[in-house]
Amino acid sequence: MKSKYIALLLLPGLLFLAAFMVIPILLTIGSTFFQGGRFTLEGYLHFFKDPYFLKILLTTLRVSLVTTILCIAVGFPVSYYISKQGPRLKGILLALAIFPLLTSSVVRSFSWMIILGKKGLLNNTLLTIGLIREPMDILYTPTAMMIGLIHLFLPLIIITLVGVMENIDPDLIKAAESLGASKFSAFCKIIVPLSVPGLIIGSILVFVGSLTAYTTPALLGGKQRVISTFLYQNAITLNDWYLASVIATIMIVITFVVIALMNKLAAKLNPGG
Rank of each mutant, 00 (worst) to 15 (best):
I69L: 13
E134P: 04
T249V: 03
T60Q: 03
L139C: 14
L102N: 07
I69T: 05
W241E: 06
L179G: 02
Y81C: 05
Q233K: 08
L265V: 13
P193Y: 04
E42K: 08
L122S: 11
L139T: 08
L131Y: 12
S195C: 08
L9K: 08
I69M: 08
M21I: 11
T143E: 13
L10K: 07
R225V: 00
F110T: 08
L261T: 12
L149S: 00
Y242W: 09
T32Y: 03
L219D: 01
M146W: 01
D137E: 15
A218D: 10
P197W: 09
K174I: 03
A175C: 06
V226C: 00
L102R: 11
I82N: 00
L101M: 15
F39L: 14
A95K: 02
I115P: 05
A175G: 03
K4C: 01
N123V: 11
K118C: 06
I56N: 00
V206K: 03
T125P: 10
G180S: 06
G36Q: 07
T237Q: 14
V206Y: 03
S64H: 00
L15S: 13
G130M: 08
V206H: 03
V66F: 06
M146Y: 04
M113E: 11
I98S: 11
V162L: 07
L61R: 00
A181N: 08
I138A: 15
K223I: 01
L116F: 09
L15G: 13
Q35R: 14
S111N: 12
D50H: 04
L172I: 05
Q224H: 13
L139I: 15
V246C: 09
L41F: 11
F230E: 02
L220W: 03
S228A: 15
F187Q: 07
G272T: 10
F76K: 00
